[in-house]
Simulated assay, not measured.
Amino acid sequence: MVHNVESGGGGKGVSCIIRAAVLVVWFYIAGVYGGPVSGPAVSSDQQYIYSPRVVVSGDVFPWRAIGRINLAGRGYCTATLIARDVVLTAAHCLWNRDMGRWYPLQYLKFVVGMNGKNVQAVAGIKRMLVSRAFSAAVSQAAKPWLDVRSDWALLRLDKPLGDMLGSVSLATGMRPSVGMPVVHAGYRYDRQEVLTVQQRCVITGIYDRQRLLRSNCQSGYGDSGGPLLFRQEGRWYVLGLHSVRVGDSASLAVAARVYSEFWSGF
């Protein structure tokens, strides 16, 4: 099930996930890792060499399709154009913990193509779609994996920026595998006004019927909602979106198959 929020709604009818949003953000800040999910999983303990993050140009595709959701002067998260007027980000980014509600959509902006103070385009948000299943573990000892899988949000823009900048397709037909090379992109806290990427990281675990992906991509504040990208035959795809840091050297992403069926109809 999904939950719609129209522009100006300001968070009505979302009491079922108040604790969820707070706790998922806490998991991100604290870097809590609750252990492997119960049930079938595929993972690898192989040691990998980490590549450094590098700055990429906001003038070049696919990087120009990756921007920030600015949260009314209260911070930001990374987001990706997946259609001409739809962006993908993490649900926990959009919850105002201080006010106990969603950020009012009229105060949110999608800013793309950042290079310092310069930007290529800005759009407002008309509508938001999040999963009603978004919930979090109730204690540090519990396993947050099955809750993280619902940490996604789709935002409808008031301008079709994808017509100008392009959009990155969701990897709906791909079967992820351990060892698959991926690229992690985001506006991380240490370079907030430029997009940085980590190349040559890989998928290290697949969980919950391929709905959760673990990688050895190293993430930080600001990366939430950023894409886990895969390139095949010269084309880029969103394989998953970054939700939570796992310790110091790995990340969890919500796989594209989880939200791919919703974006075209909301």
Rank of each mutant, 00 (worst) to 15 (best):
D190V: 10
G39D: 10
L241V: 13
R127D: 07
K159G: 03
D147M: 05
R191T: 11
W26A: 14
A153W: 01
V42W: 05
L252M: 15
K12N: 12
D59P: 04
A121C: 12
W236K: 03
I18T: 14
D223F: 02
A72H: 11
Y48M: 07
G58A: 14
V122L: 08
E6R: 13
V254D: 03
L170V: 13
Q232T: 05
Y76C: 05
V168T: 02
M164Y: 05
G58C: 11
A90W: 03
Y207I: 01
R175D: 10
Q140H: 08
V254G: 04
S51Y: 11
V178S: 12
C201T: 07
L81Q: 11
L228M: 01
C16E: 15
R156L: 05
M164L: 09
M174Q: 05
G9R: 13
G58D: 09
V183M: 04
L229S: 07
Y50F: 10
Y207Q: 04
G11W: 07
W145A: 06
R191K: 08
L23F: 15
T204Q: 10
K143L: 04
S219R: 08
V194L: 06
V122K: 11
E6Q: 09
M174R: 01
L241M: 12
G10N: 14
Q106M: 08
I66M: 03
G35A: 10
E261V: 11
G35Y: 05
V183I: 06
L129W: 02
Q46C: 10
M114E: 06
A133P: 08
D248S: 13
M164I: 04
M128C: 09
C201W: 00
P40H: 06
M128T: 07
N115G: 05
V197L: 00
Q198I: 00
S57M: 11
A79Y: 00
R84H: 11
P52D: 05
V14T: 15
W236I: 07
Q140C: 13
G100F: 03
I82C: 15
M174H: 08
R53L: 10
V148I: 06
G58H: 01
G226E: 02
W236H: 08
M128P: 03
S260D: 10
P181W: 00
S167V: 03
R53A: 07
R84I: 08
Y237T: 00
R191P: 03
S169N: 11
V56W: 00
P62K: 04
L146F: 06
A133I: 03
L239I: 01
V238N: 05
R74V: 04
L146K: 11
V202N: 01
V60L: 10
R209I: 04
E233Y: 12
R175F: 08
D85Y: 09
T172D: 07
S249N: 07
E193H: 09
Q210F: 01
G100A: 08
T78G: 07
P104R: 00
V122A: 09
G220N: 10
R53Y: 15
R235D: 05
G9P: 09
R231I: 03
C93N: 06
V258A: 14
Q120P: 11
C16H: 15
N96I: 01
S15C: 11
L161H: 04
M128S: 10
V130D: 04
G9D: 15
R19I: 10
